[in-house]
């Protein structure tokens, strides 16, 4: 499950420590944006050391430096032995994802890591990236999510980034479409106003309604709102259980067409009910039988 993904600056011991108790589904340890150019070596060693020593229950994602930075190979060389769940490629392109996948294969082999175990999350934050979203999503078997980076994208689109997000509406939809077409997760950009407790809920609700599977956060304060928005609602779970019960009863009675509350249960309703129940089960939200 990737409902909430929390960014942690890679060179901050206290944030890396505190990350272990944060209610996020995934932690993104950032070696790129959050680390000054002359501290890349320090952050790399700090993250490596933290992963070797501290117990993290969340999925670990390493945000590596861009493919034109001269740091990304060292990032991977240092971090692959720590077996992160995924690495996040910055300013992703088809070429960058392929390069990353190739080096991962090589390093997994060298470090006795199960081949293909480490996924790639492609951070899409350029106009070209949005245009090629599906190609990026399918550039490697390793790609397990597309992730929208709206701040850089807005700059590339030469428009102002707003709280309402009208300027990224199309990109969000496009990204969801590409990710779902490729059968992978779509992760929404972080909400940047740490003080706005209502704004984060509205922004997460919007992302969920567009089809995103989760949302990143730059502040732990946003995590509970994100988790709540991206978890199945109690009424949705109740409805899904009713759908399943009706289908089972129909099967027992040999009925071809099953209805619930006067409405026919067709294949999409059944499929959606199954998705809700799968998510609910993973989150321990199903009522005890």
């Amino acid at each position: 499950m990737r409902r909430s993904l929390l960014f942690l600056p890679g060179n901050s011991p206290v944030m890396l420590q505190n990350g272990a108790v944060m209610p996020a589904d995934a932690l993104i340890m950032d070696l790129e944006d959050a680390v000054a150019p002359d501290q890349k070596d320090a952050a790399r060693l700090l993250v490596t050391s933290a992963l070797r020593t501290l117990d993290y229950s969340q999925e670990i994602i390493i945000r590596i430096n861009a493919s034109d930075s001269g740091h990304w190979q060292q990032d991977l060389t240092a971090l692959v032995p720590c077996r992160p769940g995924a690495v996040m490629t910055t300013k992703s392109s088809v070429e960058a994802v392929k390069q990353t996948a190739e080096l991962l294969t090589e390093l997994e082999r060298a470090n006795q890591v199960t081949p293909g175990a480490i996924g790639i999350i492609a951070l899409i934050e350029t106009a070209l990236g949005v245009e090629q979203a599906y190609e990026i999503a399918t550039a490697s078997e390793r790609v397990s999510a597309l992730f929208l980076g709206a701040e850089d994208l807005a700059a590339d689109l030469r428009c102002e980034r707003t709280k309402e997000g009208t300027e990224i509406f199309y990109s969000r939809s496009r990204l969801v479409l590409a990710a779902r077409a490729a059968g992978i997760d779509a992760i929404d950009t972080p909400f940047t106003d740490v003080q706005d407790d209502e704004g984060i809920i509205a922004d997460a609700e919007l992302a969920r309604s567009l089809g995103f599977s989760g949302k990143a956060a730059i502040s732990p304060r946003h995590l509970s709102a994100i988790n709540q928005v991206f978890s199945p609602r109690p009424e949705a779970i109740r409805y899904a259980l009713a759908v399943m019960a009706a289908l089972e009863q129909g099967k027992r009675e040999g009925k071809g067409v099953v209805a619930l509350d006067g409405k026919m249960i067709d294949a999409p309703i059944a499929a959606r009910a199954e998705q809700v129940l799968t998510a609910a089960e993973k989150l321990g939200l199903l009522p005890e039988r």
């Binding site: 505190n18 108790v21 944060m22 209610p23 502040s219 732990p220 304060r221 509970s224």
Partner: peptide
């Protein structure tokens, strides 16, 4: 402090 807020919740 995120830890303080977490504990408060």
């Amino acid at each position: 402090d995120p830890i303080g807020l977490l504990m408060a919740d």
